[in-house]
Amino acid sequence: MVKESFGDKLLDFLIHALLVLVLIAVLYPLLFVLVASISDPAKVLGGEVWLWPEGLTLRGYEKVFQNNDILQGYANTLLYTVVGTAINLIMTILAAYPLSRKDFVGRGFFTALFVFTMFFSGGLIPTYLLVKSLGMVNTMWALIIPNAIAIWNVIIMRTFFQQSIPLEIQESAQIDGCSNVQILLRMVLPLSLPIIAVMTLFYSVAHWNSFFSALIYLTDRSKYPLQLVLREILIQSNLKDMVETSEESLAKSVMEGESIKYAVVIIANLPVLLLYPFLQRYFVKGLVIGAVKG
């Protein structure tokens, strides 16, 4: 074993110290929101809550689950995420696989055409007019169809097909009489589960956190996703349906409002927080999967 010099040990110490600071900076806000959501709102507003709950209470969660808008928004977000991610995966695979085939005529032209859309787009107003002309305004499809495919994800998946799926496998399948569709379904996709998992995570997280498209295209409150309901609570302070201001004092209403905000943040991010520790290796793989090999 090579003995480390003092400079190497000092560098290791500084790197680890920096990583610990970054870890604290990332985790503490999450911990504070969780602790504040189950603490007495008066103590939270008074700055008495730091690491441990003070005046344990679940009043905020009770108010949240009594609100129909939040429950409906949660159901809508689950629907939009599942349907949108399924469409995203199908469209991305159907675009990436042909571009990875060396025998696909014009693949360089189509790749350049796809990449062009990453730098130039029609803009918000033309997109809205197009969505309106297609009759998708105030429907779930206005949130899904315009974002049915992400070109960067297509490039990542195409690179995976090129580098990780041996060409010999496809050639042997062709010799056995398989069509391109059969090669994709029977050979390529079973060997591409890691990249499919990466794309599923990327697309599902994007759908789960999306609110701007809903803000633009939806007018019916019953179709609002959870993030848009959360935006109203956090930014517009729309608490009239959750805080009984007619029966409670203004001070208590404000405190309950703060408790509700923290509870909604936890509920909105709970699925991602629960999934990420088990699937983080796919996120890491997704970051390097399109890298150029030396």
Rank of each mutant, 00 (worst) to 15 (best):
L79S: 11
S39M: 09
V154G: 06
I151A: 05
G257A: 02
P190R: 00
E244N: 15
L270M: 12
L275Y: 04
V105C: 08
K3R: 14
S192G: 03
T77R: 00
M140V: 11
L230H: 08
N68C: 08
V243D: 05
V131K: 02
Q280P: 04
M136F: 11
S192T: 01
R107C: 02
H207P: 06
L143I: 07
L21N: 11
V272E: 03
N238V: 07
L234C: 09
E168Q: 12
G122N: 11
G60M: 04
P98S: 05
G290T: 07
V265R: 02
S164M: 15
Q162W: 04
K132A: 15
A148N: 10
C178D: 12
I260L: 13
S5Q: 04
T81F: 01
L270G: 09
S5N: 09
E171F: 07
K63V: 05
L45G: 03
L51S: 10
D12T: 12
L274W: 06
A42F: 15
N147F: 15
V33Y: 03
R59Q: 15
L270H: 13
N180P: 03
F104V: 00
L30P: 05
A142R: 00
V83G: 08
V181L: 15
F32L: 08
V181R: 14
G135C: 02
V131T: 07
K285W: 13
K252N: 11
I216W: 00
F212Q: 10
P29R: 08
I87Q: 06
G55Q: 01
L124V: 11
K3T: 13
L10R: 11
V243R: 02
K285M: 15
N180A: 10
G135D: 07
S249Q: 05
L143C: 04
M118F: 09
I87A: 09
F212S: 08
S192D: 02
N180H: 14
P53Q: 03
V64D: 07
F212D: 10
L230D: 10
P166Q: 09
V20E: 07
K102V: 09
N153K: 07
F32D: 02
A214K: 06
A86F: 11
V83E: 06
Q72N: 12
Q163H: 05
L71V: 06
P166I: 02
V198K: 01
L130K: 12
L279Y: 10
L215K: 15
G7K: 15
E48D: 13
L27S: 13
H207Y: 12
L226N: 01
L234H: 06
V254E: 11
V49Y: 03
L184Q: 00
G122T: 09
V35R: 00
F109T: 09
L230G: 00
Q170H: 07
L201Q: 04
A148K: 09
Y97P: 00
Y97I: 04
N238A: 13
F211E: 03
L10F: 10
P146M: 01
L273C: 14
G46V: 03
I70N: 04
G60V: 02
F6T: 15
Q162C: 08
K43W: 08
I183M: 10
K132H: 11
A148D: 08
S246E: 15
T111F: 12
S37Y: 04
G46S: 14
A263L: 01
P166L: 06
N138T: 04
I196V: 14
